[in-house]
């Protein structure tokens, strides 16, 4: 039986009728037509589907849309404000932190949470933080560079 689920996605109320088994990632992709959040596996390992749920990085393939009813979700599409890239997005661009780009939205969302919790992470801490995100293209070094870049950038802006 379908139920109505109401989630604020990137600040916009999204109300859709779905089955209880509908995964949050499918709610975002199929109902909201926000296809920046990707799917790379069915065992909750790859992190391509990472979004912010109530400010926390979660794998949207491992949450039911009904579990998110009444909550706030931020996806990659909601990250750039006023047409300006988020510092993490900028870092990925500046430091060639992506190749095919498939893992990138999830990687970026994960990095956003990391920098909120730990504004000055070491390279090791960054590696630990993105353990739940697989990238098969970049070999990660440039991703770590990108997140370091973003950390510096955020610190500068705060000054």
């Amino acid at each position: 039986m379908k139920t109505v689920v109401n989630i604020r996605v990137n600040g916009v109320e999204q109300k859709h009728e779905v089955e209880p088994r509908t995964l949050l990632v499918h709610f975002l992709r199929d109902c909201c037509r926000l296809t920046g959040t990707h799917v790379g596996c069915e065992t909750s390992i790859c992190g391509a589907c990472t979004v912010l749920f109530e400010g926390k990085a979660v794998k949207s393939c491992t949450l039911l849309a009904v579990q998110a009813d009444g909550s706030e979700v931020t996806t990659i599409e909601g990250l750039a404000g006023d047409g300006r890239l988020h510092p993490v997005q900028e870092g990925f661009w500046e430091r060639h932190g992506l190749q095919c780009g498939y893992c990138t939205p999830g990687m970026i969302m994960m990095a956003v949470q990391l920098l909120e919790r730990n504004p000055k992470p070491t390279r090791e801490e960054i590696s630990h933080a993105i353990e739940g995100n697989l990238c098969r293209c970049t070999g990660y070094s440039h991703i770590i560079d990108a997140i370091e870049y973003a950390a510096r950038k955020i610190a500068e802006v705060k000054k």
Binding site: T35, G36, L79, F92, W93
Partner: peptide, 21 residues
């Protein structure tokens, strides 16, 4: 040089095959 293809990818507005309806 940084890549011209990146903006669409980092904004989540690129089109992969599963994004096509």
């Amino acid at each position: 040089m940084k890549r011209v293809e990146d903006p669409r990818l980092i904004k989540g507005i690129a089109t992969y095959v599963d994004d096509i309806t």
